[in-house]
Amino acid sequence: MIARRELLRALAASAFVGDVRALPPARIEFPRDHGAHPPLRTEWWYVTGRLTAGAREFGFQVTFFRSRVDTAQALQSRFAAKQLVFAHAALTDVDGKRLWHDQRIAREGSGIAQAPIGGMQLKLHDWSLARDGSGAMQARITANGFALDLRLQPTQAPLLQGDAGLSRKGPLPAQASYYYSEPQLEARGAVTLQGKRIDVAGRAWLDHEWSEEVLDPSAVGWDWIGMNLDDGGALTAFRLRKPDGSTLWDGGSFRPRGGSPYVFSRGEAVFSAQRRWTSPLSQASYPVEWIVRTPADFYTVTAALDGQELDSRASTGAIYWEGLARLRDSNGRAVGHGYLEMTGYAQRLRI
């Protein structure tokens, strides 16, 4: 296996090489597009959710990434790192006020990492995220201090983000991704925390994106929410951020239970930071409470636990905030839960 420092060097090189072109209109088909798309440079499968065991509350995150290494594509050696696979997993113990986090990285084709085309059968060492013939997913993670064994059953049709799955992420046509979500996944299984197994149930959310380019050179990072509403609806909102904190680009969608999605136009998702928290690790200041104005409503998004910063410098090289959050409507009523992600506060994000 290639040494970790060599993998990171290859990953860094891949971020600056390649012929960037506008993506054509989406023709997303299932189950084919649950799998990998190696011709495009960057891809991720991102599962988040809220779990409960009686009165106890957890948030969880499992993410598999695939990155094409352009500088290695012409190499003939079977050991060449043409595609890298890396993964993050995290567990937020709300009552214990602690975040658990772990990460992995390896080159695809090494026998320990895979992100195949045609279906979701992701593997990295002893971590896996796989979809069976019924469409249900199984996430199995054995990490440092915690483990996850969760079955994720779809209850709704996939939600195609943007224009039928082609989601703009900046002012240039090339700054886009193919992007779909699966909200309102029924989650059941077990969390193991410090050797103790805990049966859990809850709701989860899958995002799957693949692209050639996402970030405009003037963007430092993004703010994103994916929220399962208690009534069965689904809310997505995001913005790309400039160095001065202003919005470069924004978007999102709202799908009521049983209804058709309304896709936000540029300028319709407005993020207003409220309370902030400063990380003792990175000294970054994160807004852990937001007011997010959307065409559906004005929502308040509040972190379930302030300290949900992830240090992934051993894999992706980034430090960012990602964690369980609560959603209230404009009348102050609790209406849902989901995940809030904030990148580019500790350092400029490169992707």
Rank of each mutant, 00 (worst) to 15 (best):
W222V: 03
W44K: 08
H34K: 03
T192E: 14
D244K: 06
K123L: 12
A139M: 02
R5A: 13
P256I: 07
W127L: 00
Q283H: 15
A234T: 09
Q184M: 14
R241T: 15
A269E: 01
L7H: 01
A80V: 04
A314H: 15
D244V: 08
A187L: 04
F298H: 09
R333A: 14
P183L: 02
Q156D: 12
A74R: 11
A3P: 12
S285I: 11
G133F: 02
P31V: 03
P287C: 11
T142M: 15
D163K: 06
G195F: 01
V20C: 13
F238W: 07
I225C: 04
R9E: 15
D95L: 12
T42D: 12
P280H: 06
G226Q: 15
G202Q: 03
Q161E: 04
Q76D: 13
A22K: 05
R328V: 08
A237Y: 03
S211P: 07
F65W: 10
E268I: 11
A12T: 12
S110P: 13
G162N: 00
F30M: 08
E322C: 07
F58L: 07
G118Y: 08
A234C: 03
R241Y: 09
Y339N: 10
G338V: 02
Y178V: 08
Y178F: 15
H337R: 13
A106K: 08
A72P: 04
Y299M: 10
R107W: 07
R313G: 09
P261I: 05
P217F: 10
R27F: 09
R21V: 14
L305V: 07
S272D: 09
